[in-house]
């Protein structure tokens, strides 16, 4: 069974005078353990789709199921709670809480999930170790490089053991070495923990690593390729 199933969704933004049809009937299924990139030019609806997949936004029409849950049936509060327990996020840059240290950032989600302190710290350190940044655990984001920050973000996203992780242009602000390192780490996590990753990206290097590339344009899926064996 798929983790995510999107059925014929539409998204219309009515905020401007002329309604904008960001998504025009999208169907998509994501299986557990996938390492998927969603690509497309600016304004293609890529970000809108990602927001809907991440439970940050709801479709105007159509349904989105995460396993058995139809997100449209949840109240705003339930949705928040659902995100907390099921979805991990890695954004572009600056997505850590600037006043918390790397360790505290990683711990934060666990704390929201009310995991006991001892277990929390152990888990956070383990993840920081896994993303290769344990030695910087007590540094605040401002004291870390962009690549290091993104690694903390990945650790944080994984901390709650989410069903899947949404990564929105995670490499947009990184140099190529940091990008490679970060992709390595994510791929490693994918192999090791069987974590599901969904990227929105422009970055060819990310596409090269992806198992599946979904291409979107004008609010419609125009391509869906799977690369076995990557």
């Amino acid at each position: 069974m798929s983790i995510i199933e999107v059925k014929n969704i539409y998204k219309v933004y009515n905020e401007t005078k002329v309604p904008v049809n960001a998504l025009n009937g999208v169907d998509l299924k994501i299986e557990e353990g996938e390492f998927t990139a969603i690509v497309g030019p600016s304004g293609s609806g890529k970000t809108t789709l990602l927001n809907i997949l991440g439970g940050l936004d709801l479709p105007s029409k159509g349904d989105i199921f995460i396993e058995e849950t139809n997100l449209k049936d949840l109240s705003s509060r339930q949705l928040t709670d659902f995100r907390l327990h099921n979805i991990g996020f890695v954004f572009q840059s600056y997505n850590l809480i600037p006043v918390l240290t790397a360790k505290e950032n990683t711990e934060f989600i666990l704390q929201l999930q009310k995991v006991p302190k001892k277990e929390r710290i152990q888990k956070a350190m383990e993840l920081l170790e896994a993303v290769g940044i344990a030695d910087k655990a007590d540094h605040r984001p401002g004291q870390l490089s962009g690549g290091q920050q993104q690694r903390v973000a990945v650790a944080r996203a994984l901390a709650s053991q989410p069903r899947f992780i949404i990564a929105d242009e995670p490499t947009a602000n990184l140099d190529s070495r940091s990008t490679n390192d970060l992709l390595e780490i994510m791929a490693e996590m994918n192999r090791k923990y069987h974590s599901t990753f969904i990227f929105a990206t422009h970055d060819q290097r990310v596409m090269d690593k992806a198992h599946r590339i979904v291409t979107i344009d004008d609010g419609k899926i125009i391509g869906d390729e799977t690369f076995k064996g990557r």
């Binding site: 705003s76 995100r83 907390l84 996020f89 600056y94 809480i97």
Partner: peptide
Amino acid sequence: TREIGILMALGLSKRK
């Protein structure tokens, strides 16, 4: 704004 948005995305409830 952005920071609060991220906290919300991460699952921080409105009350929090």
